[in-house]
Write a protein that binds this DNA or RNA. Sequence first.
DNA 1: TCTCTTGCTGACTGATGGGTCATTAAGTAT
DNA 2: ATACTTAATGACCCATCAGTCAGCAAGAGA
Lengths: 205, 205
Amino acid sequence: MSEPRFRRRKEDRPQEITEAALAAFAEKGYAATRVEEVAKRAGVSKGLLYLYFKTKEEMFKAVVRGLVIPRIDALAASIDTSGLSAEEFLRGPFVDFVKTLPGSPIAVVIRLMIAEGPKHPDLVQFYWDNVVSRGLSAITELLERGVRAGEFRRTTVNEMPHLLVMPAVFSVIFRLLFEKQALDTDRLIDTQVDLLLAHMKGGNS
Amino acid sequence: MSEPRFRRRKEDRPQEITEAALAAFAEKGYAATRVEEVAKRAGVSKGLLYLYFKTKEEMFKAVVRGLVIPRIDALAASIDTSGLSAEEFLRGPFVDFVKTLPGSPIAVVIRLMIAEGPKHPDLVQFYWDNVVSRGLSAITELLERGVRAGEFRRTTVNEMPHLLVMPAVFSVIFRLLFEKQALDTDRLIDTQVDLLLAHMKGGNS
DNA sequence: TCTCTTGCTGACTGATGGGTCATTAAGTAT
DNA sequence: ATACTTAATGACCCATCAGTCAGCAAGAGA
């Protein structure tokens, strides 16, 4: 006769909740987001959230974990599989990936990390181990490959892969805060990569 | 006989409160900081805060305003007064200033802006007008001076002064989150400035 | 010394929101 | 059908905290 008032979908709940939480956090930030708001977005009662996550904080951590790992895995994998030269990879898949960041869920995670990081040391540690550290190593390895192939000189950049990631982080933050004052983040990223490649390929230092 | 229980010091209160608030925000972030905690640090009762600031939010805004403006003014002024060439200014006062950022109160403000910005659009606007916009213009003007003097070619960098500020923002965030995994932020800044100067002085694009 | 002004206090309140739990109803097994 | 398990509800509890206000006391003025 009538629709049941709810369905039991134990399997799907965690991800649904996680997604709802991300959306809410993106709009209001962690502290300003009410648990009930997340519940509403997930189309579920507040009490249910506490069956899947012990506290609001646990929920927050689940969001970060669930979103970031897959993406990084994908990029790391593509470094190995693609038969591209180091320069081709940087100009191609790497730049593409970086350009998508400012508009992706990862941008939200980055903001959350900055805002809440100091209050969640274990989460920062997790993020460092699984994202930052691995990302930097992957880039270092890629540059090393370029040096071995005779594409690049060995320069300071080999010890500072940060220089390649920098524009991504900067763009994420800039877009987040000053959306209106459109900075052409794609161009910023391209320019920085051009600069670095020019420096690594020829020149004098 | 006995010390008075308090003194009336209308003049000094605002700054004392503002400083206490900054210290508290630096440790806990805005949302997690209790108004009473700020009062305690300022050695004052909670009620007093509300005589000088209508709300916690107003207090927050006062912190940002009071801390950042003076610094930016100082830097902007020194661009004009110093008789240095563009390159000398960049390698000298500019780099010095940027290097102090990650450890300065401004770093705290930057973090607060990222964390709370989306909830305070008017504050973001204020920050844009008085800090970011003015800072970028100053740099643009400096580069332009360099071009006119024949020091620099005109390149993409003239339209993207962001490239010079980027390492500062990146360093602030990096140090804030991953203090332990010491990134040599001074070196990062130097390297980026070297790269840009090399590009603007010679080369091919 | 006795006002009078006002900077300042601290106990109070009202609302908010994280977290709980007794109860209900969806699905499953017999 | 009937009994049983457990996903899901939502009304409730209560600690927390931003903001208030009646009264107090520091210092100025006479």
